[in-house]
């Protein structure tokens, strides 16, 4: 169900940290109904590129557009409200709040109830039920009353994804969702991504190192290398291209490709 207009696009975005240019003049468009994998060796600028799109960073040059609107100078909260949902690579939770509360706060943000000072949080039962639902689909229900800090690494990653789902975004940004997960936990996450993809109208961006995962999910691959966009296109094509082979050979990732 690919439509013509891109929901999210970057136009010549660059960001410079001191003398280092982490992302260099990257232009790219993302359309609904497609899953784009972003690959590249460590330090290629993948996470930085994500941060530029979801609003954690502002580019030194270039523009970011969301549904055609220039959002370059909007912060993360405003972009989240416009439909971007982001899961972080290094788990980024509310450590001393319960698992349920981590997700409930997300649902509450979606419901726009954050500024309500008069009612009790517990009286908004519908928010709690909705949060419970997202814990259920990520297989975290049994941990709902534990503090996020007490979770295992795999469960933290799942909670990260539960929060992303609870944002109910149009654009899902996964930053290495399965990194560090045990073998039996990975399918839960991949099934969820498959499920989101099957909805048909969502835009999914996925940073992932595991090439088998990329191959099974991606409709399109873009390759970042030293901050440059070096390849963009159909998965089979991109993987066969010499520049990718070279980029990956350089970091010893060739056997994964």
């Amino acid at each position: 169900m690919t439509t013509e207009h891109p929901v999210l696009s970057t136009h010549g975005v660059s960001i410079r940290f001191g003398g280092h240019i982490a992302v260099n003049n990257v232009s790219c468009e993302f359309r609904p109904g497609t899953l784009t994998a972003i690959v590249g060796p460590n330090g290629a600028g993948k996470t930085t590129y994500f941060n530029l799109m979801s609003g954690q960073l502002s580019p030194t040059a270039g523009t970011v557009r969301l549904y055609g609107e220039d959002v370059t100078h909007l912060g993360a909260p405003q972009r989240t409200k416009r439909g971007i949902g982001r899961a972080f690579q290094l788990t980024n939770l509310f450590p001393n709040l319960t698992v349920l509360e981590n997700v409930r706060l997300t649902v509450q943000s979606r419901a726009g109830l954050g500024l309500n000072m008069i009612s009790m949080w517990g009286s908004h039962v519908e928010l709690i039920e909705k949060a419970e639902h997202f814990l259920h689909v990520t297989a975290l229900s049994e941990r709902r009353h534990e503090l996020a800090a007490a979770l295992s690494h795999g469960d933290k990653r799942k909670l990260e994804i539960a929060i992303l789902l609870a944002l109910e975004p149009d654009i899902f940004m996964f930053d290495e969702p399965t990194a560090g997960m045990s073998v039996d936990e990975v399918p839960v996450v991949l099934d969820l991504i498959h499920h989101i993809k099957a909805l048909g109208d969502k835009t999914i961006l996925l940073v992932e190192h595991k090439m088998d995962v990329v191959r099974s999910l991606a409709d399109r691959i873009i390759v970042l290398h030293n901050g440059y966009l070096v390849a963009d296109g159909d998965p089979a094509e991109v993987m066969a291209s010499p520049i990718v082979q070279e980029a990956y050979l350089g970091t010893g990732m060739a056997d994964h490709v």
Partner: peptide, 26 residues
């Protein structure tokens, strides 16, 4: 009442991780 309202819960989220609170839309 304030600290147990939806607003109060956001305050705690900010104390815990303001970067993430922003990413949730607050």
């Amino acid at each position: 009442r304030i600290v147990n309202s939806p607003f109060g819960r956001v305050l705690q989220a900010i104390r815990e991780n303001d970067f993430r609170a922003e990413a949730l839309g607050y």
